[in-house]
Simulated assay, not measured.
Amino acid sequence: MLNVVINIVYLMLSLALLFAFIRLTRGPSLPDRVVALELIASIVVGYVGVHAIDTGVASFLDVAIVIALTAFLAAIGFARFVERGGVKND
């Protein structure tokens, strides 16, 4: 029963990843693309978490935490970039 649930979760995460990738490639503006990248990072964290449950290896959760922190820092960096007015041609 657990294998069926894990396979369904993998399928749902794969569909979410596909839709996020579509938004990444089509997203009309730069903020849309950045939000799509954040979503992709969150989905990857979900993949790693489900894989940790599936295999029983708890050290994968450390990997998920590192990915989440890296994505958070990237979002903060982008927010500061937008706040300062974007690219300047000085």
Rank of each mutant, 00 (worst) to 15 (best):
V82T: 11
L30E: 01
F72C: 06
L30A: 02
R80C: 11
V34M: 10
S29C: 07
R33Y: 01
R26A: 14
G27D: 05
N3Y: 09
V66N: 08
L13H: 04
Y47E: 06
A68H: 03
G27W: 05
T25I: 06
I76V: 15
I76Q: 01
V5N: 08
P28E: 10
A75V: 04
A64N: 10
V63G: 04
N7A: 10
L61M: 12
V48I: 15
E38Y: 04
A20E: 02
G46M: 04
I67N: 04
Y10E: 14
A75K: 00
A68C: 10
G56C: 14
E38M: 08
A79P: 00
F21Y: 07
P31R: 11
A41S: 13
I43S: 00
L18H: 02
Y47K: 05
V9I: 12
H51V: 11
N3S: 08
V45M: 14
F78A: 05
I65N: 07
F81W: 07
A20K: 01
A20F: 01
Y10H: 10
S59I: 02
E38F: 05
N3P: 13
L2H: 10
A52W: 10
A68V: 03
P28I: 09
R33H: 02
I53D: 06
R33E: 01
I43D: 00
I76A: 03
R80A: 13
R26E: 06
H51G: 04
M12H: 04
L69C: 10
T70G: 15
P31G: 08
A58D: 13
A71D: 00
S42A: 06
I76E: 02
V34I: 14
R33L: 05
L11G: 15
L69T: 02
V57G: 05
I53S: 12
F81D: 10
E83Q: 12
A36V: 07
T70E: 09
A75C: 03
H51Q: 09
R23C: 05
D54C: 03
L17V: 07
V4R: 15
T55G: 08
E83M: 08
F72H: 04
I76D: 01
I6A: 11
S29V: 14
I6P: 11
I65K: 02
V9N: 02
A74H: 03
F21H: 02
L30C: 02
D54P: 02
L73E: 09
A74I: 08
L30S: 03
